[in-house]
Measured scan of single mutants.
Amino acid sequence: EPIEAIAKFDYVGRSARELSFKKGASLLLYHRASEDWWEGRHNGIDGLVPHQYIVVQD
């Protein structure tokens, strides 16, 4: 079951695997890939989301 998150800041992906998004964007998170990253989805694209840039919705 994906988790919803909201972007705290704009983020520009630094590689093809990283998602880019704007502050306030809604993201879906699948699972924690590491301490710093989530596997997630934004605008229909799957990729990595940096933990420091999002607020996970409970």
Results as ranks from 00 to 15, higher is better:
43 N>G: 07
43 N>E: 15
37 W>D: 02
12 V>Y: 08
8 K>R: 09
38 W>F: 02
48 L>C: 04
19 L>N: 02
15 S>K: 07
34 S>I: 04
19 L>M: 06
14 R>G: 12
1 E>V: 04
24 G>A: 06
46 D>A: 12
20 S>M: 03
15 S>F: 08
34 S>Y: 07
8 K>V: 08
48 L>G: 03
12 V>R: 12
30 Y>W: 11
32 R>Q: 09
4 E>D: 06
36 D>K: 11
9 F>C: 02
29 L>P: 00
33 A>R: 14
15 S>E: 15
45 I>H: 10
12 V>H: 14
40 G>R: 00
31 H>E: 14
22 K>S: 13
29 L>F: 00
48 L>T: 06
19 L>T: 03
24 G>M: 05
54 I>Q: 03
35 E>G: 11
3 I>W: 05
46 D>P: 15
23 K>V: 06
44 G>H: 09
17 R>M: 07
44 G>K: 15
12 V>K: 07
10 D>S: 12
17 R>V: 06
53 Y>R: 12
19 L>Q: 01
25 A>M: 12
16 A>N: 07
18 E>H: 06
28 L>N: 06
45 I>R: 06
7 A>D: 01
32 R>V: 04
49 V>M: 03
53 Y>K: 14
50 P>N: 10
58 D>I: 03
52 Q>W: 08
15 S>G: 14
40 G>W: 00
58 D>Y: 04
23 K>T: 10
7 A>L: 01
23 K>C: 03
38 W>K: 00
36 D>Q: 14
9 F>T: 13
29 L>C: 05
25 A>L: 02
54 I>H: 02
25 A>S: 14
51 H>N: 15
15 S>T: 14
30 Y>V: 12
44 G>C: 10
19 L>P: 02
31 H>S: 07
45 I>V: 13
8 K>L: 08
45 I>F: 13
2 P>W: 15
3 I>N: 04
25 A>K: 08
8 K>S: 10
4 E>S: 10
39 E>V: 08
34 S>V: 04
43 N>Q: 15
43 N>K: 09
16 A>E: 11
8 K>H: 13
5 A>V: 10
56 V>A: 15
9 F>M: 14
54 I>M: 14
24 G>V: 00
44 G>F: 07
23 K>F: 02
29 L>E: 00
53 Y>F: 13
45 I>N: 14
27 L>E: 01
5 A>P: 00
35 E>D: 15
37 W>R: 05
40 G>T: 01
48 L>I: 04
19 L>C: 07
58 D>V: 06
17 R>E: 12
28 L>I: 08
32 R>G: 02
8 K>I: 05
13 G>T: 07
5 A>D: 00
5 A>W: 01
1 E>S: 09
10 D>P: 08
37 W>S: 04
1 E>K: 04
23 K>P: 03
50 P>R: 13
48 L>S: 07
39 E>I: 03
6 I>R: 13
20 S>T: 12
20 S>Y: 03
27 L>Y: 00
11 Y>M: 03
24 G>I: 01
8 K>M: 10
44 G>M: 08
17 R>W: 05
15 S>P: 04
34 S>Q: 10
2 P>C: 15
30 Y>K: 14
21 F>S: 01
25 A>V: 07
46 D>Q: 11
35 E>P: 09
54 I>Y: 03
7 A>T: 02
21 F>Q: 00
11 Y>T: 02
39 E>G: 04
26 S>A: 12
25 A>P: 00
23 K>E: 12
22 K>N: 10
17 R>F: 04
26 S>I: 11
46 D>E: 05
20 S>P: 02
30 Y>C: 10
12 V>S: 11
48 L>V: 08
33 A>G: 10
6 I>H: 15
42 H>C: 12
2 P>E: 15
40 G>Q: 02
9 F>Q: 14
23 K>R: 08
47 G>T: 01
37 W>Q: 07
48 L>W: 14
44 G>L: 06
49 V>A: 06
14 R>N: 10
26 S>C: 10
14 R>M: 09
44 G>N: 11
40 G>E: 00
25 A>R: 07
49 V>P: 00
27 L>K: 01
33 A>Y: 15
46 D>H: 09
20 S>E: 05
48 L>E: 03
51 H>R: 12
36 D>L: 14
52 Q>G: 13
26 S>D: 10
2 P>G: 15
51 H>M: 04
33 A>K: 10
19 L>R: 02
4 E>W: 05
44 G>E: 11
30 Y>E: 07
6 I>S: 11
41 R>A: 13
31 H>V: 12
12 V>G: 10
12 V>A: 13
10 D>L: 03
5 A>C: 13
3 I>M: 08
53 Y>C: 12
47 G>P: 01
22 K>L: 10
21 F>A: 00
46 D>K: 09
51 H>T: 09
47 G>F: 01
16 A>V: 08
3 I>V: 12
4 E>F: 14
21 F>K: 01
52 Q>D: 15
40 G>K: 01
18 E>L: 03
42 H>A: 12
45 I>Y: 03
11 Y>L: 02
2 P>Q: 11
39 E>L: 08
54 I>P: 03
39 E>H: 11
3 I>R: 05
40 G>V: 01
18 E>P: 03
20 S>G: 06
58 D>F: 11
44 G>W: 04
27 L>Q: 01
14 R>A: 10
36 D>C: 07
38 W>M: 02
17 R>K: 02
2 P>K: 15
41 R>W: 14
58 D>L: 02
41 R>M: 05
9 F>R: 14
29 L>V: 09
35 E>K: 15
13 G>M: 10
40 G>L: 00
15 S>C: 06
4 E>G: 07
32 R>A: 06
44 G>Y: 12
46 D>I: 11
4 E>I: 06
24 G>Y: 06
1 E>T: 05
9 F>G: 14
41 R>C: 14
38 W>I: 01
24 G>W: 04
58 D>T: 04
48 L>F: 13
4 E>N: 04
14 R>T: 08
47 G>R: 01
7 A>G: 07
47 G>V: 02
39 E>A: 08
1 E>A: 05
53 Y>I: 05
43 N>W: 05
30 Y>H: 06
7 A>R: 01
13 G>C: 08
30 Y>D: 05
22 K>D: 12
11 Y>G: 00
39 E>K: 15
41 R>T: 09
42 H>V: 13
33 A>F: 10
3 I>H: 03
21 F>R: 00
43 N>M: 15
48 L>H: 07
35 E>V: 13
26 S>M: 13
15 S>Q: 15
18 E>M: 14
36 D>F: 12
13 G>K: 15
47 G>I: 01
50 P>D: 04
33 A>S: 13
3 I>T: 10
13 G>F: 02
16 A>M: 05
31 H>F: 05
17 R>A: 11
32 R>K: 13
50 P>F: 06
39 E>Q: 10
3 I>E: 07
58 D>W: 09
54 I>L: 12
18 E>R: 04
26 S>R: 12
29 L>H: 01
28 L>G: 08
2 P>R: 15
29 L>Q: 00
27 L>F: 05
36 D>N: 07
8 K>N: 08
43 N>F: 11
20 S>Q: 05
19 L>W: 01
31 H>Q: 08
7 A>E: 00
26 S>N: 08
45 I>D: 03
11 Y>F: 09
46 D>G: 10
26 S>K: 05
52 Q>L: 06
41 R>L: 09
37 W>K: 04
58 D>A: 12
30 Y>F: 11
19 L>F: 03
27 L>T: 02
7 A>C: 05
7 A>I: 03
32 R>W: 04
35 E>W: 06
11 Y>P: 00
31 H>T: 07
30 Y>N: 08
28 L>C: 13
27 L>R: 01
5 A>S: 08
32 R>S: 04
